[in-house]
Design a protein around this nucleic acid. Structure first.
Lengths: 222, 222
DNA sequence: TGCAATTGTTGGACGGCGACCATAAATAGA
DNA sequence: TCTATTTATGGTCGCCGTCCAACAATTGCA
């Protein structure tokens, strides 16, 4: 698991990853994302086209570097929510999800807005942009839904679990969209996500949260 | 506007569209969607590859024919909701959206489940499948959001409008997913969408619906 | 009957993405 | 020095979606 210091065998990697990101950022500004080819990015970064695929699975990954690092916090945020729940048993499921998503939102730097959000506004549907977006949405949704299912005791494929997690993430995505569109005066993402997500949690709380003061562990099968 | 009977100039089209749909359906069953090429579909339908693009903009359009016809009902459903609202002034915005989305759900035949829903379950991320899915989501969301904005008086790009519409559609999508996965015993989509959508509407009702019994038309700017 | 206009169909070619494979370079340890 | 391991590179492949220049079929008009 520990592969931080020791792991110096084989050819050392070049400084390619950052070079590729910088080159891509320049090209996305000069021309748009759609009319930027992988060849151009790799050539400007001084590496081969195939080397690009050693660092990014697809061209669209370059749009989501900030989002991916924020999404990486989700498992830990959920684990923290679990720990808090152990100490504070009456914490609700919807509240835990809300806290985790807000924690995720805190991982986005207001000065480093992901390319995915700016470029999607600029040009309607950039093809693989949509695909990559839904890919992130899916992974986050599957993580959240298993958390919700375990907390509520509902089966993993229950309709309420899925509708809640997808609605919550969709609201968060809408918040991120308007946040990215709010010029330079935008602050943190957190208040945006908060106002978008709170109604969703409030709506699902009556049907998902177990009665707080009751020791009855029975789960209401819909 | 009336182009039903008269309009026979030029070479008449072949029976290609249905042939292409049938050929695609066969091939999607034999092999999956991902490993079916446009060449195969066109060849089995007896037409050329380019003819395929005369009837469908992309290969993924074949997955959404049923969904597209259901989505086509959305503008009319929203207009009906407006008409109902004129007669029944205290009808809420969230209620109108709920009615429109349920009307849309009624347009899906339980015996003709869209390929998009079955194939997406089968294989994780089929690439352009995700793209096409988000495309549908976007068009529906933009329609719904302008409706919500007009009804509430909020600006068109207001965060609450967008978060509500996206959350509602995400819940509906989750419902369609589990509906498609519920074997042959599934009935109509409507109850699925109802249980998934109701909490979302309930959560946003306090912040979107104008106070019913009050003559005060002022809109609360967030 | 012949001629244009319109519309559908076809072939060919192109650029681009992403996957694959074999091979060369660079480094650590034996 | 040799070997194992990891990164970098070149080349090829199938496919998608776009474009263009023809060709075919039908209608309307002269």
């Amino acid at each position: 698991m520990d592969q931080s210091a020791t792991r110096r065998v084989g050819r050392p990697p070049g400084s390619s990853r950052e070079m590729l990101q910088e080159a891509a950022a320049e090209l996305f500004l000069e021309q748009t994302y759609a009319k930027t080819t992988i060849d151009q990015i790799a050539r400007r970064a001084g590496v081969s086209r195939n080397t690009f695929f050693n660092y990014f699975h697809a061209k669209s990954d370059l749009l989501w570097v900030e989002v991916d690092s924020a999404l990486a916090r989700l498992p830990q945020a959920l684990a923290d929510a679990d720990a808090d729940a152990d100490a504070d048993a009456q914490r609700s499921v919807t509240g835990a999800v809300r806290a985790a998503v807000l924690d995720m939102a805190g991982g986005l730097d207001p000065s480093r807005v992901p390319w995915a959000l700016t470029q999607s506004e600029l040009m309607g549907t950039a093809g693989d942009l949509a695909e990559s977006a839904l890919s992130r949405f899916r992974s986050a949704a599957s993580l959240l839904s298993v958390f919700v299912a375990r907390r509520t005791g509902l089966p993993a494929d229950d309709l309420l679990c899925w509708s809640f997690t997808m609605a919550a993430l969709a609201a968060a995505a809408a918040a991120a969209r308007t946040w990215a569109g709010s010029g330079v005066s935008r602050g943190t993402l957190i208040p945006y996500v908060d106002t978008a997500l709170s109604p969703v949690c409030a709506g699902f709380a009556p049907v998902l949260d177990r009665p707080p003061a009751s020791g009855n562990i029975e789960i209401a099968r819909r």
